[in-house]
Design a protein around this nucleic acid. Structure first.
Length: 570
RNA sequence: GGGCCCGUAGCUCAGCGGUUAGAGCUGACCGCUCAUAACGGUUAGGUCGCAGGUUCGAAUCCUGCCGGGCCUACCA
């Protein structure tokens, strides 16, 4: 059986993500996972929370909690919301897991043995008041270039000049505001990716089918200026994976942890081990080790464009540098950003709709459909309440939901809640089946290519075909003269419901299930062939007219939400 | 500063060297009455950001400009 390994960029532990984050990785990854499962392939779909780094420590402190406690709590929160959106992870792991500790330390040991780790002594800013080293962005001061007084240590937001923290006039900690800063000598490990430049270049060059968005970013980092730079992979923090060389201590690195961007991608692998240890699977290496069966696995990663360098360069450098036969990614699907009503979604300003809020006002299918059918694939796209309302009402309520409603209610009134058996299919049905076969193949092709908006448009056209057929066959008129023919039309139309449900399940899993349940259809195998797919409901089988699948969004609701989410998150 | 992406109907987007530039939504008109006033059909609407160039032929390739966005390596 074909096997597909799918990972979504792992969301940071710090707070609840907004819809832009969702549509940039987890949601499309879930669509692809569900589609592949639907096609009968063996799928391992993994995601996790990314729990290390300075922001996690600060967020925990702000919440008055221990970091580990805070992360455990936020992991549970994110897991519940993911479930609310029906994200079908086989496992939702944690980068702080013991499995990831072991694996990260293992990789570091292998890289050191391969001569790919350098120990570098450097000078960094230390805040006595905060009792921590400060990353460049956590140092504020006056810009020497333009005089802006809230310039950060890496760059001035006002004049965009690149800065070094030591350039700042009157530097202070962005955490506490303290000016009691000093420069201290500290030793760190660097991954010598520069020595792997040719190897990485050759690997990227072999990926001719990757989107330009993905390869151009990687090529720039590889070849711009002096080429790929070595990268620090350790930090002076309390919370993280202790620096070790495999299982042994690393002399001189006591008290230091690996940098979050070193351990986070390794969690993709460790998550599979967590999956096994949680009793959900029995062999993770056949997904990840090419010497243990992973050779025939297709590995697809989903992420926002900001994550591309880490997935095209530093993570592959880690894997290739280990000298071990780990699975490398086969395809990277990256996304642009979703904007909110004329500006950006903003976590810090609470601008836009966050995942928990979205679920509190509407079922997940509404969001899944709109977000996926407007996924920012080629450029940034924009969420507006007007577009959302119009799209959801038209596509889900009028086209799909109303189709199910009109045919089930028609059948109930003329033949009862049972699949009618009289009459035979004729040229009209043959014509619709031919059209549906063509559209089904186009839909599948778009899904295979992970062209999400095109797949959504094709699916919608498949729904529309049902209304076109019903309108031209007009069983309500035919019934007066030829009840048997009307019965055949009705039987055919009712059979479209489970067919639609199976094709639509990757986008709108809950509604799809409701459709199958209402029709009493237990067969959920993918309808490869339209004629077969439209014969799943045998004549004489009972069904129930389902509740309204998608209630429309009223103008009042829209106006209310528009106002509610315009300001700052409460 | 450098790099990359985008700019096509009122809106969201497709097309990316070859007949009169397409789809969905919105608008207008017609039809239907089974249905969540839903559905179907017809139709209106664009000098394809601007200016040059290459070509028998350009929305599509090249150059410059204008506008929007992202990245630029210690945020993750």
């Amino acid at each position: 059986m074909e096997r597909v390994l799918i990972t979504s960029a792992i969301p940071y532990i710090n707070g609840i993500k907004h819809l832009g984050n969702l549509v940039g990785s987890q949601l499309p990854a879930d669509l692809f996972a569900r589609y592949n499962r639907g096609r009968g392939r063996e799928v391992l779909f993994l995601c996790a929370t990314d729990e290390h780094g300075t922001p996690a420590e600060l967020a925990a402190a702000k919440a008055g909690m221990d970091v580990a406690e805070y992360c455990a709590k936020m992991h549970a929160v994110q897991a519940e919301i993911a479930q609310g959106f029906r994200l079908s992870f086989d496992h939702f792991g944690r980068s702080s897991s013991p499995q990831n500790h072991r694996l990260t330390q293992h990789f570091a040991g292998r890289l050191a043995d391969a001569g790919l780790i350098a120990e570098v002594s450097e000078r960094q800013v230390y805040s006595n008041a905060d009792r921590r080293f400060l990353p460049d962005r956590y140092i504020e001061g006056t810009c020497p270039n333009c005089g802006y007084d809230k310039a950060r240590g890496d760059q001035c937001e006002n004049c965009t000049k690149q800065l070094d923290p030591t350039d700042l006039i009157e530097p202070r900690s962005a955490i506490s505001g303290s000016t009691d800063l000093e420069v201290r000598e500290t030793k760190h490990l660097y991954l010598r990716q520069s020595s792997m430049r040719d190897q990485l270049n050759a690997w990227i060059d072999s990926k001719a089918d990757w989107p330009i968005l993905t390869t151009s970013i990687a090529k720039k980092w590889l070849n711009d200026g002096d080429g790929l730079q070595d990268r620090g992979i350790t930090r002076d923090l309390d919370w993280g994976i202790p620096v070790k060389k495999g299982t042994e201590d690393w002399p001189g690195m006591e008290g230091k942890v690996f940098y979050v961007w070193f351990d986070a991608p390794i969690e993709y692998i460790a998550c599979a081990a967590e999956w096994v240890d949680a009793g959900k699977g029995d062999d993770w290496e056949r997904w990840w080790r090419t010497d243990k069966g992973a050779d025939d696995v297709r590995y697809v990663q989903f992420m926002g464009k900001d994550n591309v360098p880490f997935h095209t360069l530093s993570f592959p450098a880690t894997i290739l540098g280990s000298g071990e036969p780990w699975k490398l990614v086969d395809y990277i699907k990256s996304f642009n950003y979703l904007n909110y009503d004329g500006g950006q979604f903003s976590t810090s300003q609470g601008r836009g709709v966050f995942m928990d809020q979205a679920l509190s006002i509407l079922p997940s299918d509404y969001w899944r459909w709109w977000l996926l059918s407007h996924a920012p694939e080629t450029s940034d796209s924009e969420f507006t309440w007007e577009n959302f309302q119009a799209g959801v009402n038209k596509d889900l309520a009028d086209v799909l939901g109303n189709f199910v409603s009109r045919i089930t209610k028609f059948c109930r009134s003329k033949f009862g809640e049972v699949i009618p058996e009289a009459g035979a299919y004729g040229p009209q049905e043959a014509q619709v089946m031919a059209e549906l076969q063509t559209r089904l193949e186009a839909y599948q092709a778009h899904m295979e290519a992970i062209e999400i908006r095109k797949a959504a448009a094709e699916l919608r056209a498949i729904w529309v075909a049902g209304n076109e057929y019903l309108q031209s066959a007009a069983p309500w008129t035919v019934h007066k003269e030829d009840p048997d023919r009307a019965a055949a039309i009705t039987r055919f139309s009712l059979n479209l419901i489970p067919f639609y449900a199976l094709l639509s399940a990757p986008f709108i899993p809950d509604a799809a299930q409701a459709m199958l349940d209402a029709m009493g259809c237990a067969d959920n195998t993918w309808p490869e062939d339209v004629a077969e797919g439209l014969s799943r409901l045998p004549a004489g089988q009972g069904f129930a007219v389902p509740d309204v699948l998608f209630a429309k969004i009223s103008d009042e609701d829209r106006a209310t939400w528009q106002a509610q989410f315009a300001g700052v998150r409460g």
